[in-house]
Design a binder for these strands. Structure first.
Lengths: 150, 150
DNA sequence: TATATTTGCATCGTACACGATTTAATAGTA
DNA sequence: TACTATTAAATCGTGTACGATGCAAATATA
């Protein structure tokens, strides 16, 4: 009722916003070595699983729009991590394919999950909390992204 | 060991990044009515609790730097939500004070936590999950933001 | 088949984030 | 006191986010 609900720590928005940024920072040293940013890392993870998909399929997996992805993919093309080519079957679609360099980065990235785990554990983050959080957040993604297809 | 760890859903980075953006979107309809953005809302919450603090104190509470806050505060000054004045005690500091308009918004914001709660519940988000998540995330903020004072 | 609608992507404008640098004011110290 | 170090903001450059709009290709429908 009163003011207490309007306090930073009492709303879910601030903690999740801050932790998201703090986690991004925890990834940064590893991504810097690879010369990529955090969102670019997410794109690469999608492509490592599914090379040769079209832009729209990436937007679905990352819940990002083309207004974010198109410029980003152009930068990644300039960095020679990917290639962008129009589909011949459907001239509207753009197929994204990893270059040799883009594929190569997967090897460097292989250790990131473990390394990051070490960092978190050394900072006294509970592994059980990470696992639980992952579960809850993945459910929320399902729920919150469901009705947004309009 | 294998590839599975490099999958989107198996890392903590993607879920937290996505949920953060999805939660921001959930707030948007309410903030649009007030004509403010999500980060501006955070600044206002800080000021509603502690009016007349200096920029540096805001950076500490929100874990943001002046390179983000300075331009943002200028925009908020232009919107007549706040006033920016140099401290007389220490000419380096800039004191941020809410205007009448900025204070007025607190009344409009008072319902947001409840309204957002309703939205989440209607989307079948478990209240117990929200509470638990808030607890875990606030701990993580403590931990992850600790050694970053350098 | 001509036209309307939808789809996939790109572009534009605005607002963050953030590393790095700059500037001015204060504090510390020889 | 003169000089150095620290501190508080601001600025710069780059890279996202995202609502809105534009455009061409494909599809649907009269």
């Amino acid at each position: 009722m009163g003011d207490s609900q309007l306090k930073l720590s009492n709303q879910i928005c601030f903690p999740i916003y801050s932790v998201s940024r703090l986690i991004t920072k925890a990834y940064k040293p590893f991504l810097d070595k690879m010369g990529i940013t955090y969102p670019q890392y997410l794109v690469l993870m999608v492509l490592w699983e599914n090379d040769g998909i079209i832009v729209n399929q990436i937007t679905e997996k990352l819940l990002l729009n083309t207004n974010t992805l198109s410029p980003m993919l152009k930068r990644m093309e300039k960095m020679e991590l990917i290639e962008r080519n129009r589909s011949e079957k459907d001239e509207r679609s753009v197929i994204i394919k990893l270059t040799a360099k883009g594929k190569e980065l997967k090897k460097q990235a292989a250790d990131i999950p473990n390394e990051l785990g070490k960092v978190l554990v050394s900072e006294n983050v509970e592994v059980s909390d990470i696992m639980h959080l992952k579960g809850v957040l993945n459910e929320w993604i399902e729920i919150l992204s469901e009705n947004k297809e309009s």
